[in-house]
Design a protein around this nucleic acid. Structure first.
Length: 584
DNA sequence: GCCGTTTTCGGCCCGACTGTTTTCAGTCG
């Protein structure tokens, strides 16, 4: 029975949760061992199912015992230990741990003393006063637990906000705080800074000696809808966009250490702390400092003011925030480093752009081209929607007229290469607009899915592969068609799609629109491993949207994708000859 | 349960907050 890495990882995660309950502590070493093994499995690129027990035990984080459990799961679909724990701690009981304020110890106490094994029983015990008699459980705890149950499933932590909502809100808040005199430095941190596609809450970090003044200015901001809580070092609010924002004020000297700490991820921080310990230091949100046996003495600070000096002290290259997931980046930082990752300045061209000729484009050709030149681009592809797209598609005549206009503009300007292209629509069977002869007249063709989102994996994969095999197609646009927070992407056999991309030389787009960020990071990472060529495209429908190239760069960096694999970081000479080779 | 230029035992990341206590355990991020 074949099992995917994801299924194995989920089984290990469940083992971790159940063991936490069983051992009565989230810090029990067995719990952490299962969590480490889960992460190890998630970062494996090959199928765990194809590895023997001894091969699995070679993987860091997986030992003899867990290797055996994984093999059992792969072969039989079950794990004895997991079944045993499920028997002992049914799902309803596990769910009690989700109530804020209840951990493993309290859940066990409630069962032992009151026979409480599910949320309903807990609610009843809270109401009739039985809970308040238990050791460590006073009136305040009862009140908090009641509130927690009422909010269960509705907390901001469970309601992920798409990055397209969170990032603009965070940037507005950071810009506003930057104007406040008491603020020395300000930045957003957390999963948003790591460029996750969805965010729980936004952490904003301020360096200041005047926390009260900063808090006052923050609460007065027009972004704030309501205040959740406000203390000396932390203030939590909900913005008008429904984003929870936690503001933390730290002493200016500690800003770098705090930025590392609050950017996370938690797993990355743990790795850094281990590295600090190896050097006889300790790392917390205030500083990297020499370990002291006597807590009464002052800390001897090694580094704290900037992130760069902390990484440097730990003998690591500065780890880009996008990569701080404990997914091999610490090893990379002590080895080759991150110089191969693209930066915004590396982009030489943009290869997916709409003018007002498309029904949904807003600026004329001249405006878009001028904006591209202003941004320092040396080539630009105009790819208005092809004729099959309802409402917005462009006729053949329209395309030919645009081509003439574009050639003339390229001549008269002389400062940018212009490619005449189109964004084709991949139909249900993988076919695209126009006919082969007409398609041959274009310089660059992006083919994208705009319809038939509800088809089987096999059908969707076949569509995309068929489009890739079309010799006219240069790149596949927004691969999954997902809209973050509102529409899941089409389901694909990623391996088959990536293999077809390599075989046909078709580029895969990294669409920089914040609502898309498509292809997803996992697909890019695997594609990079297989030698797929990518392009980072803004899919601009207005000149101003060329600026979102930075989000495409962040997406590529998060996937660890090097410049060498991104065709539009290549200078025109190389890009042009690559295009010519593809045509042969 | 995992790991190892101090290997087969004895370690394993850190601090704030809360509610309950009066020195701390449990929870949380």
């Amino acid at each position: 029975m074949a099992r995917t890495n994801d299924e194995v990882a989920r089984a290990l995660a469940e083992l971790a949760s159940l063991t936490e309950l069983d051992e009565g502590s989230p810090n029990a070493f067995r719990v952490r061992a299962y969590q480490n093994a889960e992460r190890a499995v998630r970062s494996l690129s090959e199928d765990v199912g194809e590895r023997s027990e001894s091969e699995l035990a070679q993987v860091k984080g997986i030992g003899k015992s867990i290797a055996g459990r994984i093999r059992q799961f792969v072969e039989t679909g079950r794990i004895d230990k997991l079944e045993e724990l499920r028997e002992k701690h049914p799902p309803e009981k596990l769910k009690l741990m989700k109530v804020p304020g209840l951990g493993a110890k309290s859940v066990q106490l409630l069962e032992d003393e009151l026979g409480v094994r599910d949320i309903d029983a807990l609610a009843a015990a809270l109401d009739d006063g039985r809970v308040s008699g238990l050791p460590g459980m006073g009136a305040k705890t009862v009140e908090n637990l009641k509130e927690g149950i009422a909010k269960l499933g509705l907390t901001s932590k469970d309601q992920r906000v798409p990055i397209a909502t969170a990032l603009p809100a965070a940037e507005r808040i950071v810009a506003a705080l930057d104007e406040v005199p008491a603020v020395e430095q300000v930045a957003y941190a957390g999963s948003l800074r790591r460029f996750r596609a969805d965010i729980g809450d936004v952490d904003v970090l301020v360096a200041s000696d005047d926390p009260a003044g900063v808090r006052e200015a923050f609460l007065a901001s027009s972004e704030v809808d309501r205040t959740i809580g406000s203390g000396d070092t932390k203030t939590s609010v909900v913005t008008r966009d429904g984003v929870q924002v936690d503001l933390r004020v730290v002493p200016p000297a500690s800003f770098g250490a705090a930025l590392v700490y609050f950017t996370g991820s938690k797993a990355h921080n743990i790795r850094l702390r281990q590295r600090a310990l190896e050097r006889g230091w300790t790392l917390n949100e205030y500083a990297l400092a020499v370990q002291r046996d006597d807590p009464g003495t002052d800390l001897e600070v090694v580094a704290q003011r900037t992130e760069a000096e902390i990484y440097e002290a730990l003998e690591l290259a500065f780890v880009p925030p996008e990569l701080r997931e404990d997914d091999g980046e610490v090893e990379r930082a002590s080895g080759d480093g991150f110089d191969a990752l693209p930066t915004l300045g590396d982009l030489e061209g943009d290869l997916h752009d709409h003018t007002d000729l498309s029904g949904d484009g807003r600026d004329p050709l001249e405006t878009l081209v001028a904006a591209a030149v202003d941004r320092g681009l040396s080539y630009l592809a105009i790819t208005d929607h092809a004729e099959d797209l309802a409402m917005n598609g462009v006729s053949r005549e329209g395309m030919l007229a645009q081509r003439a206009q574009l050639r003339e503009l390229e001549q008269s300007r002389g400062d940018i290469r212009l490619l005449h292209g189109a964004e084709l629509n991949i139909d249900a069977a993988g076919g695209v607009d126009y006919d082969a002869d007409f398609l041959a007249g274009f310089d660059w063709l992006v083919a994208s899915v705009h319809s038939y989102f509800a088809r089987s994996v096999e059908e969707q994969t076949q569509r995309i592969v068929t489009a890739m095999r079309n010799p006219a197609v240069s790149a596949i646009g927004h691969l999954t068609g997902r809209k973050l927070g509102s529409r899941p992407g089409i389901e694909l056999d990623v391996d088959a799609v990536l293999d077809a991309a390599v075989e046909t030389g078709t580029a895969i787009e990294i669409n920089a629109a914040l609502s898309r960020l498509d292809a997803p990071v996992e697909v890019i990472r695997e594609g990079a491993r297989r030698g797929v060529t990518f392009v980072i495209s803004t899919d601009a429908h207005a000149a101003g949207e060329l600026a979102r190239a930075r989000f495409g760069i962040a997406q590529a960096r998060r996937a660890g994708l090097g410049r060498a694999s991104i065709a539009n970081t290549w200078a025109w000479a190389r890009f042009g000859s690559w295009l010519d080779e593809r045509r042969v």
